[in-house]
Design a binder for these strands. Structure first.
Length: 363
DNA sequence: TATATTTGACCGTA
DNA sequence: TACGGTCAAATATA
């Protein structure tokens, strides 16, 4: 085992532990900033891990796909709410034009959304549509999207979005490739900044300064649209557990929202409120504006992405599983990790992650 | 004017 | 040869 592998394992383990902590903080009493921070750290950790994978070549990637999962997640598909997270799909190699062989990751997120103008779930990244095809046997065409920063930063992440045949309110989103653009790091930065801002007691835009009213109004408009999306999302959220190709890769595991009505409600409310109030609207570009006066958060999109990226690669927790953790909020208090105080804040590279003087940081 | 989307053509694979 | 994925010119939008 070389240094790179050690680092990779280290990053993945860190991400796993952070995810556990995050789960413990998915309760109303927990600070949103805390969750933001954790999400940011998770994203950062997985991005680092992915970078390591990317630099280790296809062979190593294939090996990574065989990462042993000591404990398979419960196939608790009976949960009323679940989201399916992706897996590495090495059958989907990009064979177009016989390019240089490049490992691909395929992550799938199946979510239920309204069919509003916003379209498929906003995931915090910016995408550009580059194609659409009618798929044989499918009622709806499939849209092809690539990262907006493909040219500028060589980010090769793509995704495919297709409306479900069975339920028009369901979008099946397949992610291919991981973002190498700065967006991912920005998500982490924004989350961390949110935490810092809380510490600095920076007031939100309840009293916008001169010249900012217009921007706030624009944000409100976005928010309004986003809330519409959220409404549909929440209304349409349902258990969508599907059998994925676990026979081959064996690492794709379901993620279940809590089945307990009360906790489920609480979690969902907070979770999706975050999505709507902060992220769907601006794809993280306006993380601190909250016309409703509620706390701002990058949690939702980050978590969403964390879920699709992080958990997809994960690698089951030795604790067994996030499904169990989430389904049983009480586990939070029993967790050996439990408190945020376990989080080593001093590990945060503030200089690197907090370029407050950067114009794009608080845009 | 810059950026994003649409859409028909093209290419490789099965 | 059908199909899925991508390209790129044309068009639309901000």
């Amino acid at each position: 085992m070389d240094l790179g592998e050690n680092n990779l394992i280290k990053e993945l383990n860190q991400g796993k532990e952070l995810a556990k902590q995050l789960m413990n903080h998915l309760q109303p009493s927990s600070s949103r900033e805390t969750r933001d921070f954790l999400v940011g750290k998770i994203l950062s950790s997985y991005e680092k891990a992915l970078s390591l994978l990317n630099t280790s070549g296809g062979r190593d990637r294939d090996q990574s796909n065989l990462v042993e999962s000591p404990h398979s997640l419960d196939n608790n598909n009976t949960s009323p709410r679940s989201v399916i997270f992706g897996h590495e799909d090495f059958k989907h190699r990009d064979v177009f034009k016989k390019r240089k062989v490049m490992p691909r990751w395929t992550e799938q997120v199946k979510v239920c959304l309204g069919t509003g103008p916003e379209g498929p779930l906003e995931d915090g990244y910016s995408w550009r549509k580059y194609g659409q095809k009618d798929i044989l046997g499918a009622t709806h065409p499939r849209g092809y999207y690539r990262c907006t920063h493909r040219n500028a930063q060589g980010c090769l992440a793509t995704k495919q979005v297709q409306k479900s045949d069975e339920d028009a309110s369901v979008f099946e989103v397949t992610y291919r490739g991981h973002h190498t653009c700065s967006r991912a790091s920005q998500l982490a930065k924004a989350a961390s900044a949110s935490l810092i801002k809380q510490g600095l007691k920076v007031e939100k835009d309840q009293s916008p300064r001169e010249g900012e009213e217009e921007k706030v109004e624009e944000e409100k408009k976005k928010l309004k649209r986003s809330k519409s999306t959220l409404f549909n999302l929440r209304a349409g959220l349902e258990v969508k557990t599907e059998e994925l190709d676990t026979k081959e890769d064996g690492i794709f595991q379901p993620f279940a929202f809590p089945s307990t009505p009360i906790e489920s409600e609480n979690l969902e409310t907070n979770f999706f409120s975050d999505i709507v109030e902060n992220n769907f609207a601006g794809s993280f570009s306006q993380p601190f504006i909250s016309p409703t006066g509620s706390e701002s958060s990058n949690l939702s999109v980050s978590l969403w992405h964390m879920s699709t990226v992080g958990l997809a690669n994960n690698v089951q927790s030795s604790e067994s599983n996030l499904t169990q953790i989430i389904s049983n909020p009480n586990s939070a208090t029993n967790s050996p990790i439990g408190d945020l105080t376990d989080l080593t804040l001093d590990k945060v590279d503030f200089e690197e992650n907090f370029p407050f003087d950067s114009p794009e940081f608080f845009d």
